[in-house]
């Protein structure tokens, strides 16, 4: 089998020009080869542009790192706290919050953060993110623990942070310097978002338990 990109010449003219009724080449970039399984694909995202950012758990960590000025560190933490109260994701229940941010990291009643979040649950702000240098003109963003239940089960981990608009910051082992996709670095949430889950899948489960095929070798397809 040829590896790498195939030529997408699948139109009728190309077909008749080469005198066959079949694909000229078939290449698989993901699912073929030793060790490549159908699982774990969610980690692969091709062709992203990135920004260098700094991630700190506190103003003191920022000061100690001596990458940005003391004034920048102070202003960044203050901006992150303001943004946290205004834009942190809101969940209807503690369980919903912990399902995404993890049971250990801590989700708190919204009223303890801001009166506007009364009756909701918010993740704790565990870090903030700022640009490597002022010229990048990146917005400061509060960061939350990222540990979705599905990833915890599937990969024994999750980990890292996410932004209020859902951008993922991969785990940083102690250091402050991270590369994140440009869209994550530049997308800030301006309005808090309430996320509900589990609203798809129920009908499939019901059919499966009634004697259908979902959950066996054959699922929802036909």
């Amino acid at each position: 089998m040829s590896q790498g990109m195939s030529q997408a010449t699948g139109d009728a003219e190309a077909e008749s020009a080469r005198g066959t009724k079949r694909s000229a080449a078939v290449s698989l970039v993901l699912i073929a080869g030793v060790g490549a399984t159908a699982y774990g694909l969610s980690r692969l995202e091709a062709g992203r542009r990135t920004e260098d950012v700094l991630v700190y758990r506190s103003r003191d960590a920022c000061l100690a790192d001596r990458v940005r000025s003391a004034q920048d560190c102070t202003e960044a933490e203050a901006a992150a706290r303001v943004a946290y109260a205004a834009t942190a994701p809101r969940y209807e229940t503690l369980e919903d919050c912990e399902r995404h941010h993890g049971p250990s990291a801590g989700c708190v009643p919204g009223a303890t953060v801001t009166a506007a979040a009364q009756g909701r649950f918010l993740p704790v702000m565990t870090a903030f993110m700022m640009g490597r240098n002022p010229e990048q003109a990146l917005p400061v963003q509060p960061l939350y623990p990222h540990a979705p239940e599905e990833e915890r089960h599937a990969h024994g981990g999750g980990g890292g942070y996410c932004t209020g608009s859902g951008g993922r910051i991969a785990f940083v082992g102690g250091g402050s310097r991270v590369q994140v996709p440009t869209e994550v670095a530049r997308t800030t949430s301006t309005t808090p978002r309430l996320v509900a889950r589990g609203g798809f899948g129920g009908a499939g489960r019901a059919v499966a338990s009634a004697g259908g095929h979902a959950g066996s070798g054959h699922g929802s397809g036909g």
Binding site: L44, G47, R90, P192, R197, G198, G201
Partner: peptide
């Protein structure tokens, strides 16, 4: 040339918007 992440059907979320 597209990104192609996977998610389980039951993990699809619906936000307040």
């Amino acid at each position: 040339g597209l990104s192609a992440p996977f998610l389980p059907v039951e993990a699809i979320g619906l936000d307040s918007d």
